[in-house]
Computed example of a mutant assay.
Amino acid sequence: MKILVFLVLLGLHSAAAGIHSLKYIITVSSQVPNFPEFVIVAMLDDVQIYHYDSNTRRLEPKQDWMNRVIEDDPQFWESHTARGLGYHQLFKDYIETLKQRFNQTGGIHVFQWVGGCEWDHETGEVNGFRQVGYDGEDFLSWDVKTNTWIAPKQQAVITKNSWNNDKAQLAYYKHTINQELPYWLKMLMNYGRSSLMRTELPSVSLLQKTPSSPVSCFATGFYPDRAEIFWRKDGEELHEDVELGEILPNHDGSFQMSVELDLSSVTPEDWRRYECVFHLSGVKDNIITKLDKTAIQTNWSKTGDGRDGGSSGFPLVAVIGGVVVLLLLVVGITGYFLWKKNKKGKEGFKPASTSDSSSENSQQINLKT
């Protein structure tokens, strides 16, 4: 489906220890089959905590501990549901404006707004972010230091000028970054601390598809996703003949990742010099796996006449299962655009009216989350 081209697989990353984030992702789409026209997702430390879409028209908790938030503060759920209902039409109008501006009459189109804040609980520093994308490309970004919008495309200049002239809205952005968003982030962290702050070490295996394939060091079942895995030789990390894979989610909320090592130019005598290292943020000791031919799991075996035979235990189910779950999660939470790679999003969004007027009568969105 074309929409998947615009979505990065969960946007998982290895955040620095001590830094927590609260992100809100709003997506409105046009003519996408079997997909809600409007979706809101809230992410705490890159874990989905609730979801709203135009099909169900209600907020749905995605973590067990979010039920305690609802019980303690019923207005939280009611007010956020009401916002979802109100924002739907505003964002729908905005995507129609963009279609006109880009001279588009039909087809699949996706508009996405990402925003929130990061909080370093060790230093107390708070940073906010807001970013807008259209059809998989940057449309607008917000510079938190100058409190101004930046337009990377000519079609966005009208909106950029309109929003930068709205001083009241810009002042509101600063208020949400300094006050409201940090409050919600800290409150939600208190509720979800036991789940979000836990650490789980993985099982680590050596895998090889065929005798001539690279050897993969595969770690699965770890939490959180702030982890790294690498090969080293004689105690030195390798950067050549290695290929690092993405961190992927498992069905139980844990994660998996792998790193491949090409041994085509390595003699059997030198295998003992290699080892795989897995490091989980917040955990002192690493998991070290020596490169041992007898420990490698494969999906091939030798028949009696020396030909390659059938499977001997390569855990394809874990890998395939992770990919399937990943794709389901991508569709379920709408993910991030490819334009977000290595960028910060920007919280808060005010779609312009069809004329992009900055007058007091212009419609605007204030995400007081």
Rank of each mutant, 00 (worst) to 15 (best):
H80V: 12
G115C: 08
F139H: 04
F255W: 07
W142P: 05
N178S: 15
A168H: 04
A171V: 03
L238V: 07
Y24I: 13
N190A: 14
I365L: 15
A151G: 05
K209C: 06
W142C: 05
G310R: 08
Q112Y: 04
T369N: 06
D135L: 09
K186P: 00
F76M: 11
V319T: 04
L327F: 09
V330S: 03
R273F: 09
V324H: 00
I70R: 10
Q155P: 03
W231I: 09
S194N: 13
R101K: 13
G345V: 09
N164S: 05
V157W: 02
K302E: 07
K284Y: 02
G192L: 09
V266K: 01
D73E: 13
W163P: 00
T27Q: 11
G133L: 06
K290S: 14
D93C: 08
A352Q: 04
R130V: 13
G106P: 01
S281I: 08
L10Q: 05
L263N: 00
Q256C: 12
K344W: 06
A227H: 02
V144W: 02
D143L: 09
D135N: 15
Q364S: 11
I320A: 04
F129S: 09
S141Q: 05
Q256K: 01
P249S: 03
T27K: 06
L44Y: 01
S205L: 15
T81M: 09
C217W: 01
G335C: 11
W339C: 11
S213G: 05
K290C: 09
L316M: 13
Q256V: 10
E122D: 07
P36Q: 05
G133F: 08
L238G: 00
G86V: 11
L248M: 14
P36T: 07
G313W: 03
